[in-house]
């Protein structure tokens, strides 16, 4: 059969001969051969809309069947980079920058500030350094050994966006927590926060482990996650993560940390919402497909 491809603005991008009952995955390497710039991860195809004014239908996935005389619309996703690379580099900032503020206060705050940091303040700063480092070391290790990504790549521009976010916030939070004029909170708040932080980190790891076990190695299979907090919310890994930053903020009490937590929570709320809707759409209980548990919430058990 023959399939032709156009750009989204209607420019012809060639006709392709495919075997009968082929899927999009067989077109992708042929398209790459004809257009060497656009490797498969950089390609996105849409079926052409019914009418010129109609909104563009959702993108095809590699398993979408094609039929003879189909006209597909091609969109360039831009240069791609591995998810793994982005994750490893974006978390490297917090891991390297933060200790700099703790270990070399003279470089950051200058020699002029001769405040005597009390032993208790130094102790809280040390606990914060441990917690922060634990969190990002855990993320690096999870990236290497736990996560199974559903997409291999993302646009290169995300690397810069994400790195600015993580490196920037790491410096911003570290600046205030390790400041020579830092005022630590009371003991009971620090210890409560610390307990909350580490318990939630363990919870976060357990949720990541559950997600890993859902997906057999080397596949992009999606299943309904079960067990633990997954019975109550779709994205307990985010619930744990937000609570873990709440613990960090109880320990350290800075506005900067609070802003970081709110920015992260907002982003996770958006991601969790779309993941929840994807689950509901994919597991609709029709035609032998599993039904997504209807009472399951998005992020906050029983509420949201």
């Amino acid at each position: 059969m023959k399939v032709s491809v156009q750009s989204t603005s209607g420019r012809p991008l060639g006709d392709y001969q495919l075997p009968a009952s082929a899927t999009l995955s067989s077109l992708q390497p042929l398209f790459h051969a004809a257009h060497p710039l656009y490797y498969p991860d950089r390609q996105r195809f849409y079926p052409s809309p019914a009418a010129p004014s109609a909104t563009r239908p959702p993108a095809l996935n590699p398993d979408s069947p094609l039929s003879d005389a189909d006209v597909l619309l091609f969109k360039d996703l831009g240069p791609q980079i591995l998810w793994k690379t982005v994750f490893l580099l974006e978390y490297l900032g917090p891991l390297l920058l933060y200790p700099l503020f703790y270990n070399q206060p003279r470089w950051i705050y200058g020699d002029a500030i001769h405040a005597a940091v009390t032993p208790w303040a130094r102790e809280v700063q040390f606990s914060a350094l441990m917690a922060w480092t634990f969190h990002y070391a855990k993320r690096e290790l999870e990236t290497l050994f736990v996560h199974r990504f559903s997409h291999a790549t993302m646009p290169l521009s995300n690397l810069f966006k994400n790195s600015i976010y993580y490196w920037g916030f790491a410096a911003y939070v570290a600046y205030f927590v390790n400041h020579p004029l830092y005022t630590p909170p009371k003991e009971d708040l620090v210890y409560t926060g610390m307990c909350l932080f580490y318990f939630m980190e363990v919870g976060n790891l357990s949720a990541h482990w559950t997600l890993r076990m859902l997906r057999p190695p080397g596949t992009k299979v999606r299943r309904i996650p079960r067990g633990g907090l997954f019975e109550l919310v779709s994205c307990p890994n985010y619930t744990y993560e937000i609570l873990s930053w709440l613990g960090f903020n109880m320990m350290t009490k800075t506005i900067a940390g609070l802003l970081f937590m709110c920015a992260g929570a907002f982003q996770m709320l958006v991601w969790a919402g779309s993941k929840h809707r994807r689950y509901k759409k994919e597991f609709d209980g029709k035609d032998g497909r599993a039904l997504y548990p209807p009472s399951r919430k998005i992020l906050i058990p029983f509420l949201y």
Partner: peptide, 9 residues
């Protein structure tokens, strides 16, 4: 300016 209880500047 620092110092203050919410550690903000």
């Amino acid at each position: 300016y620092m110092p203050n209880r919410v550690n903000f500047a």
